[in-house]
Design a protein around this nucleic acid. Sequence first.
DNA 1: GTCGGGTATGATGTCAACAGTTGGAACGCC
DNA 2: GGCGTTCCAACTGTTGACATCATACCCGAC
Lengths: 232, 232
Amino acid sequence: MAAKSNALNGIPRETFASMVGERIRSNIIDGVLTPGSQLHEVELAASFGVSRGPVREALQRLIQEGLLRSEAHRGVFVPVMSDDDIVDIYVAREALETAAVRRIAGTARSASAYKSLDKVVRGMESAEKAGDWKLVASRDLDFHTALVAAAESTRLERMFTTVISETRLCLRVLTSAPDARDDLVQEHRDISEMIRADDTAGAITVLTKHFDDAVVTLRSRLSADSEGDKVG
Amino acid sequence: MAAKSNALNGIPRETFASMVGERIRSNIIDGVLTPGSQLHEVELAASFGVSRGPVREALQRLIQEGLLRSEAHRGVFVPVMSDDDIVDIYVAREALETAAVRRIAGTARSASAYKSLDKVVRGMESAEKAGDWKLVASRDLDFHTALVAAAESTRLERMFTTVISETRLCLRVLTSAPDARDDLVQEHRDISEMIRADDTAGAITVLTKHFDDAVVTLRSRLSADSEGDKVG
DNA sequence: GTCGGGTATGATGTCAACAGTTGGAACGCC
DNA sequence: GGCGTTCCAACTGTTGACATCATACCCGAC
């Protein structure tokens, strides 16, 4: 059939469901869909120019990823992250990432791991110099993604994909103010170098501290945010 | 209302999709669906007496859990676990469970954790005395499930649910021979007691060793199995 | 006898319509 | 005027049919 110009176009080399899912995920992470808001299947289907089938499938996937919450016969909603959720997300990340470090350091993987991590850290450093805090935050997540990827564990990576999405969801609620923590980039550099030196314990220590700081920052920011303005 | 005796019955308090999913999951774990076999949507739909929609949704969920593998326009299959998969599953479990221990030991959670763990261990011990190795294996998984549950982390638990299912899938391929490792129950007892004593490091050490042993056992069994008889 | 193309088949991917349930609003009763 | 009931509207859950794609088989040419 003739492809519509703007929306999901033409030949489904990738399936409609996956396209829609990716699109919705972006909308959630980018904050187009605010926490607490409901997603209507028919509405989404219409806006994407597809049927409810693929939309439903996409929603199902995102629900299982934790990016959406479903109430039976009610609808699906963008979850509102509580303080407990934030802590929990970072508990999960700590579990996954420290495991990744243990699997990398002292093995044949450490060399290539350092290579990819170093690249990301350099990106962070240049972004920091440019004062582009949004890019720094983005590279931050890239770093941790690269870290887990370097562990070369299918399941570690699969699990991490979901929690990093949730992390993005957390970060999105924050106003894009300049990051309070000026040692953030340095910490990533440290972790990277410790992995190069096969200093497993050191890397894990820094990583753990890194997460603890992040939780503290996030929580204070969140509470300040919820006092300042109310939900739309 | 009157419930139909055997099949998916009556009022959809739970949705058809979730029922079908649970049923299929059981069939996979219990070995009714052998690794490598294909699942046909229409076939399943007919056997459950529902349409393809719910079946599709259920399959989608199980695919994302890693209990099924999907090939585009080909079909969905029960995955055959390779050696690498087994190692990977235990890497993931180690990540999750050591994190759980870290979160339990030395906190207010340790008391109630010990309580539930002790109960499971007692069950293991009595099963061992009775020589019921199948029950021992089942209690084994219960122990680790209880361990993660005691950590009271939604995400840790969510991730663990999928990986423990995969573990069951691994164990299912093994013939139900008596377990070679006679110190298995004792190890669980040790872990339980160490958590009671808030000995985090000790518990993690034993846990890690426990996993390493399991991998070795599984791998040797698997290779012996694949040499012995071929796939049905 | 072997290789290549074309077709047939059976699967998934997608669609539009139907049924059941939930939440709320209007209405009537106490 | 407050409260319970009933009706309505909108949404999800489900269905059966249609479109598309990949594989496998068959037939003809070399």
